[in-house]
Each structure stands twice: as C-alpha cells, then as structure tokens.
C-alpha cells in the first residue's frame, strides 16, 4: 500500500523536476515545441497533456500490462530493468545479510571482551568505517586490489564491471566464477561499511543486557558469566537489531548506487544516474519502485525476524 503511494508520488516528483523536452532541444536541426511534443507523445510524455492524464495512462499500462513505459528516446524501460535489478538486488541482499551477520558477530565478540585490546581495536576500526564515505572506501578497496593483483602478477580480484567484458568462454561454471569474482569487492565494500554500524549498536545493546537482572538469575543457577550471557542475554539483545533492519535499507540503497558507479556496474545505480541525466521520467519511477520494493522487503523481513526472536510480539 505504502509502496504504491510512494511510487506514484515519485511519478509526480519526477514529472515536476525532469524536463524530457531538453533531450530534443539540443538536437540539430532545431525542432519546434510542437514537434518535440509530438515525439514525446509517443511515449506518454507529452508536456501539453495534463500531468494527471499522463499519470493515469502510465499507471494503467503498468497495472494492466506491466509496461513501465518508455524513455524520452523511445527505449522501453521494461527491457532495461530485469538484468539490472538482478545485479543490484544481489548486491543489496548480500550487503545487508553479510553486514548484519558480521556486525552482530563482532558486537557479541567485543561486548564479552569489553575494554580488552580486541574490543578497543575493533571499536576504533568500526567508528572509522562508520564515518567513511562510500566513495572513499570503494576507491580504497580498488587501490588495495590493484596493488594485490600487481603483487601476484595476475588479476585475481576484478575491480570493474559485473563480469569480464565480452563474456567468458567455457560454459556455466567459469561464468559463475567470473560473476562471483566481480561481485567480491563491491560486496566487501557494502558489508564493511554496514557492519560497522551493526557492530557498534549490537555491542552496546548486549552490554545493556549483560547487566539485566535475568542474567544474574541465570548466574545464580550455576551458569558462569559467559554461559549466562550466551544463553540468556544474547537473544533479547538482538531484538532491537532485527527491528531496525528495515530502516537501513535506504542507506544501503544509496551505498549501492555509489558502489556501482565506482566499480562500473551496469546495475540500478548506474541506471539511476543515467535516467536523471536523460530526463527519463519513467526510468526514474522504475528505479524508485525498485528502491521502495527493497525497503518493503526489508521491513517484512524485519517483522518476521522480530516475531521469531521476541515471544512478546508473537503471542500477543
């Protein structure tokens, strides 16, 4: 429901701020407004038509035929989306899942060694990463990988694109390997940045729970401190983490856009930049739909995770 409203709101936003006519204005020979309008009318972008009417015809196309419209130059949006969405989707999914796992694990590890050396080092590292702009970390990773490759004398880690240009010969497995190889660095980038935040929150959450009365009760039954924390405090302390997964998706999406552009992926992120530059109203809306869907998926996932972890939500 929210997604629908959001997508449609984006449509109007995009109509308001993008001017498809400019794509034609600089073309030679110069065309009149009339001509431009006629050209755009083909794609449902005729500026002479009221925005509401354009929106209605676009919406009915989407709903009835799942046709997401055309760009101002006539490229159907639908043809651009699937493979891009798949690429970005796997990047976002991997980024979220891995960063949550890594971050929570780090949080638990450091919380049980509060003020130890490992805790201090990791904490500093996480604070650093937490504040690192995506661009900086991505480029840093590339430099590192290039240096690494030079050391080894061969390309072990690929730094650009989602696959080797021109494809890889040799059937399914080499292709998969090639894909995975290209996926490594961007995923590491998103994971590292994301996990820093999770690490810091999880650490303080667990530290709070370590002092809870029920941990004392558990210790009073004869469990050692570590056992009591693992069996009793851990689960409650992950509940707020699970709840907040949904709210990080927009940030991950932003991170993914930049990561893609740095690593030269032809994913939704690249498409996002192109569509805005090309005044592609329909393309922009499709990107918005993708983002909204990702957020919604995150929200549903967070709800399920919370329900599994927290009996108070489940039963009531």
């Amino acid at each position: 429901m929210m997604i629908l409203i959001a997508i449609n709101a984006t449509y109007f936003f995009a109509t308001l701020f993008l001017d498809p006519r400019s794509n034609y204005r600089d073309l030679r020979p110069t065309r009149s407004d009339e001509e431009i309008g006629d050209a755009l009318a083909l794609y449902g972008l005729d500026p002479r038509m009221p925005a509401v009417d354009r929106w209605w015809s676009w919406l009915s196309d989407v709903i009835l035929r799942f046709d997401w419209g055309h760009s101002p130059t006539g490229v159907p949006v639908g043809s651009e989306i699937p493979h891009r969405a798949l690429l970005s989707g796997q990047l976002i999914l991997a980024g979220v899942v891995l960063s949550v796992i890594l971050g929570v694990a780090l949080g638990v590890y450091t919380a049980s060694r509060q003020y130890g050396i490992a805790d201090r080092v990791l904490q500093t590292l996480s604070v650093l990463l937490y504040n690192m702009p995506v661009v900086v970390s991505a480029l840093g990773l590339i430099l590192l990988a290039v240096w690494f490759n030079q050391k080894l004398g061969q390309t072990v880690l690929s730094v650009a694109g989602a696959g080797t240009p021109g494809g890889v010969a040799g059937g399914f497995w080499p292709v998969l390997l090639d894909r995975a190889n290209h996926l490594v660095l961007p995923t590491i980038n998103l994971t590292l940045l994301g996990s820093a935040g999770w690490h810091l929150t999880q650490r303080s959450l667990l530290l709070d729970n370590i002092n809870a009365d029920y941990v004392r009760t558990a210790r009073a039954t004869g469990l050692t401190r570590t056992q009591a924390i693992r069996r009793h405090a851990l689960r409650s302390s992950t509940i707020p983490t699970a709840t907040s997964i949904a709210f990080t998706i927009p940030a991950v999406f932003t991170g993914a856009v930049i990561t893609e552009s740095v690593f030269g992926w032809e994913g939704m992120g690249r498409y996002f930049i192109q569509t805005i530059i090309r005044n592609d109203v329909h393309g922009v809306v499709a990107v918005a739909a993708f983002g909204a869907a990702a957020t919604a998926a995150g929200a549903i996932f967070a709800d399920i995770a919370t329900a599994i972890l927290d009996p108070r939500v489940r039963v009531n």
């Binding site: 929210m2 959001a6 984006t10 949904a246 927009p250 918005a288 909204a292 957020t295």
Partner: peptide
C-alpha cells in the same frame, strides 16, 4: 507515523538527486 513510513519508503536519495539536479 504514516508520514514517517511513507518518506522512508520513497527512495529519498533519488528524490534528492532529482531536486538538486534540477
């Protein structure tokens, strides 16, 4: 809360890009 959730779902980065691009 509805407004908050709505604005969270709108890919704000995209709208920001739209606005500042314009």
């Amino acid at each position: 809360l509805a407004l908050i959730h709505f604005l969270l779902i709108v890919p704000s980065f995209l709208v920001l890009a739209l606005v500042s691009n314009r």
